[in-house]
Amino acid sequence: MEEALERIKFSEVAAALKDTDHPFPPRLLRGFSDLFPRDIKEFIPIWQDTSITRKISLLEDLEELTEKDTLVCFDEVAKAVINDLDPRVRVLSIRLLWESEDSKLVPILIELMLEDVDEGVRSTAASLLGHFVYLGELEEISDTVKISAVKNLLDVVLSEEVSQVRMRALESLGYSSHPKVPALIKAAYDSKENLWVACALCAMGRSADDQWFEFVQEKLDSNDSDIKFEAARAAGELEIPTALDHLFTMVEEEDFDSEIRLAAIWSLSQIGGREVKDKLQELLRDSDSEEEIEWLEKALENLEISSSSDGLNFLNFKPQGNVDDEDEDDDLDDLDELDEDDGFGDVDFDSLDEDDDDDDEEDD
Results as ranks from 00 to 15, higher is better:
Arg90Trp: 05
Asp155Tyr: 04
Ala187Lys: 11
Arg90Phe: 09
Leu158Trp: 06
Ile147Ser: 03
Glu111Trp: 05
Val121Ser: 12
Ser172Val: 02
Met113Gly: 01
Leu170Gly: 08
Cys202Ser: 15
Leu138Pro: 00
Val106Asn: 00
Ala125Trp: 00
Val216Ala: 06
Cys202Gln: 14
Leu114Lys: 09
Ala126Arg: 00
Arg168His: 05
Leu135Gln: 08
Ser123Gln: 05
Asp143Ser: 03
Pro182Met: 15
Leu128Arg: 13
Val156Leu: 04
Asp116Phe: 04
Asp221Ser: 12
Asp224Glu: 04
Pro182Cys: 15
Ile94Phe: 11
Asn223Pro: 00
Leu105Phe: 01
Pro107Lys: 04
Ala200Asn: 07
Ala203Tyr: 11
Leu153Asn: 08
Val165Asp: 11
Ala188Ile: 13
Leu92Ile: 15
Ala203Met: 05
Ile147Ala: 03
Tyr175Asp: 13
Glu137His: 11
Leu195Gly: 04
Ile94Tyr: 08
Glu218Trp: 04
Val165Gln: 03
Trp196Ala: 05
Ala203Trp: 09
Arg206Asn: 13
Arg122Gln: 13
Leu138Asp: 04
Val145Trp: 04
Ser191Phe: 08
Asp190Asn: 15
Asp224Phe: 01
Phe132His: 06
Glu161Gly: 02
Asn194Gln: 07
Glu99Thr: 08
Asp118Pro: 06
Asn152Arg: 08
Ser222Ile: 07
Ser103Trp: 00
Tyr189Lys: 13
